[in-house]
Nucleic acid binder design. Structure first.
Length: 254
DNA sequence: ATGACTCCCAGTGGGAGA
């Protein structure tokens, strides 16, 4: 089975690329972030034509998440239960017995800002909810745009980024607290080439110079870990015309 | 270099993203 995550940065713009990618890279399920669409505008028919069921949770202009799956997702959850949050950042569903949680973590803007405090609080709420979810279903994937580079090797210039947003000690500690639930970064289960990123700034020819961050992740629960066969970042869509600034991440379970 | 690009909503500029 294959599962993927992709921050598409506007599904209105990227739907053609997404359907093209899915046709070439069929997966059992994919979670999307930054759809930036109200629910009435979600292009579910595009995906149904490819054989995917769709679940979505959007809002105007910002955020927005979705879950596409070959088999219809069960027990669909939108946002974090108990967290009063106007922002559409989470969608979860059970697919083939696996609890698939798709998340668009807050950006956080800069340390010391209100948005940064919201980011940390939001991750704390996610963690508390996932602790319960893992008890209900130990076979769980947490995938999405974490907006956190967990280690210096996930940053093209760790000195320039030291203490900056995505790289602060607080964010990395929060990432490790998710790991502490019994989750594992699937990408690091395998030997990977150096300088692998999932995001490149649109500015300054960053992709051409391979100046990026690895901030999109797939964390697998202990029960799934022995089944992980591969985890890769597909850079190819970043080379397209009008690309998303993020690349998809794919995990294979066997 | 407090930039650079892209997307959005708005409206001929500005916020947000990362």
């Amino acid at each position: 089975m294959k599962f993927a995550t992709w921050n598409v940065n506007s599904l209105a713009v990227r739907a053609p690329q997404l359907t093209e990618w899915l046709a070439a890279n069929p997966v059992d399920a994919i979670v999307l972030q930054e759809t930036k669409l109200t629910d009435d505008k979600f292009p579910h028919k595009d995906f149904e034509a490819l054989g995917y069921h769709a679940q979505w949770h959007g809002q105007k202009t910002y955020n927005g998440v979705a879950l596409l799956s070959k088999v219809e997702a069960q027990a669909v959850q939108k946002n974090i239960p108990g967290l009063d949050d106007e922002q559409a950042r989470v969608i979860a569903g059970t697919v083939n017995g696996i609890r698939v949680v798709g998340a668009y973590f807050p950006n956080g803007q800069a340390p010391g800002t209100e948005k940064f405090a919201y980011k940390l609080k939001w991750i704390g709420a996610l963690r508390d909810w996932l602790r319960q979810e893992l008890e209900l279903n130990p076979r769980l994937l947490l995938m999405g745009d974490y907006n956190i580079a967990p280690e210096d090797r996930d940053v093209y210039d760790p000195i320039a980024w030291a203490g900056q947003i995505h790289c602060t000690a607080e964010e990395r500690d929060h990432f490790q607290q998710l790991v502490g639930l019994g989750l594992t970064d699937a990408f690091r289960l395998f030997e990977q080439p150096p300088k692998c990123w999932s995001w490149w700034d649109y500015r300054n020819l960053a992709f051409r110079k391979n100046q990026g961050l690895r901030i999109d992740h797939i964390l697998v629960s202990e029960a799934l870990r022995p089944e992980v066969k591969a985890c890769v970042i597909d850079k190819l869509p970043r080379k397209a015309e009008r690309p998303s600034d993020h690349a998809p991440v794919i995990v294979e379970l066997g």
